[in-house]
């Protein structure tokens, strides 16, 4: 097993084998984060590729002050957010279906994303959760994905997002409160129809 620091030094010299090793070591980490935020397999693959391309181009700026995985997480989140912005920009030019029906009743949009790592018995519930996560503000969504999908600790999330542990705690608390409200509205509307 080649040392992480040695791999990075070789990547700075644009070594192809080192790059291949880095991609193979961290591809699941990058892809799982991307799919958690984007909720689409194709988009997640696209962002994974963009993340590694960015890492290859700008590895010289990696000073080793944080872990390499932390640096990769940051690039992934930034690329995923850019991807969401680009998609929204495209949607502005297309026909946008109204979120509300004729009587201002929320239309029940059925969940359509199923995370491949979820167990069979939780599949339906997790799909509803992912749908609700789409409505969270970006920083709450990112923290929630890191905690619940990537399984990072509060300290690790703080390192990636450059915030304190207590700020992570507050962010996740707000995310859960918002999700509870979104889910309550969803199930209430579902029961009415």
């Amino acid at each position: 097993m080649i040392e992480e620091t040695e791999l990075i030094e070789r990547l700075k010299k644009k070594d192809r084998t080192a790059f291949k090793n880095i991609v193979e070591t961290w591809q699941d980490l990058v892809y799982n984060t991307a799919i958690g935020i984007l909720q689409n397999a194709e988009d997640a693959e696209d962002v994974t590729q963009e993340t590694f391309m960015q890492a290859f181009e700008s590895v010289s700026s990696f000073k080793g002050e944080s872990k390499f995985s932390t640096w990769l997480y940051r690039i992934t989140v930034s690329k995923a957010m850019d991807h969401i912005r680009k998609k929204k920009r495209k949607k502005r030019f297309a026909f946008i279906q109204s979120l509300y029906g004729k009587n201002d009743q929320p239309v029940i949009d059925p969940p359509d994303f199923f995370h491949p790592g979820i167990s069979m018995e939780n599949k339906e519930n997790a799909a509803v959760l992912f749908k609700a996560m789409e409505q969270l503000p970006p920083n709450q969504k990112t923290a929630f994905v890191f905690n619940k999908v990537e399984g990072l600790s509060y300290i690790e999330i703080g390192d990636v997002m450059k915030i304190t542990e207590s700020a992570v705690d507050a962010l996740l608390h707000r995310a859960k409160a918002n999700l509870k409200k979104i889910l309550k509205d969803y199930y209430t509307a579902l029961n009415k129809n």
Binding site: D28, L29, Y31, N32, I35, A44, H115, P116, G117, I118, S119, N122, N125, A126, V128, L129, K148, V149, E150, G151
Partner: peptide, 8 residues
């Protein structure tokens, strides 16, 4: 529902 989730 995401408890015990595996990496994609």
């Amino acid at each position: 529902s995401t408890d015990g989730i595996k990496r994609a």
